[in-house]
Amino acid sequence: MARYDSLLDACGNTPLVGLPRLSPSTEVRLWAKLEDRNPTGSVKDRAALWMVRAAEGAGELRPGDTILEPTSGNTGISLAMVAKLRGYRLVCVMPENVSAERVQVLRMYGAEIIFSPGPGGSNQAVALAKQLAAEHPDWVMLYQYGNAANARAHYETTGPELLRDLPTITHFVGGLGTTGTLMGTGRYLREKVEGIEVIAAEPRYGELVYGLRNIDEGYVPELYDATVLTRRFSVGTRDAVLRTRQLVEVEGLFVGFSTGAVLHAALVAGHEAVKAGRRADVAFLVADGGWKYLSTGAYGGTLADAEAALEGQLWA
């Protein structure tokens, strides 16, 4: 049934669509899990809803409370929607170099935004949020990078949906950020499907983004457990843009650049299966649509133009 009592109830149960034109062969098929069909248009609705519900269930969050979250955008938008419907105030800490649309949508939902310096990326946003949390002990930081309910949302929903819709699944490919999607979905599928490949596609941004990072001050999200993954790819800006454009040109799917990176890794796995003469059903996750990234200008012009436009931006 496609009728729901409220917007929150319409979270999840997203379509899984075949991509016959992009699939390497009739034996090696690609499937896209359309997470842009969630209430605010991204996969983060699942994590936001589950994190809020878990905090409510634990008595840590009561109506009128303030939620604080470091986010580069999508989680903030999802939390803003959930906060509005459940009666919370939301303060987002966000790097200043995220796309303009994300800021506008957050403000529209009534969220307050505190910007962290762009060159520090998401980790500086995390640092600033932790500092604010210390200064405001009554604020509740859900902390998507370390909140088990983020991964649990996918263990309980995304994973089972994939197996229900594609019992012959051989590969699952997702983007690596907080790692929640891959940890939860991957854990579920590895328990149920023998030999399944769980593949991470990690965005490799332009050099400006990494410029100031000191290796000794690295960061791995608390949720990350390498044993859940079977492979991990680093996908550069150019490949991500190329695949993003290919998806809309060949299959009519208009997605954000992180999905282009995910498709790139999915195609690597798919072509390997063809070469090895194995059948494969490769499901990959579309984290969001392309709407919020139009202002980057990276959907038009040459690949080199797009790469230049995205240099220094957190495009995933």
């Binding site: 905090a55 990326g121 998401s122 930081m141 859900l142 990078y145 370390g146 983004v209 001050e217």
Partner: peptide, 21 residues
């Protein structure tokens, strides 16, 4: 990096993750 950054000294400055949720 996580989401495009790595600055553990700063990120870890206020202690570990807040366990809410």
């Amino acid at each position: 990096v996580a989401g495009g950054a790595a600055d553990r000294a700063a990120a870890g400055g206020a202690g570990g993750p807040v366990p809410a949720g």
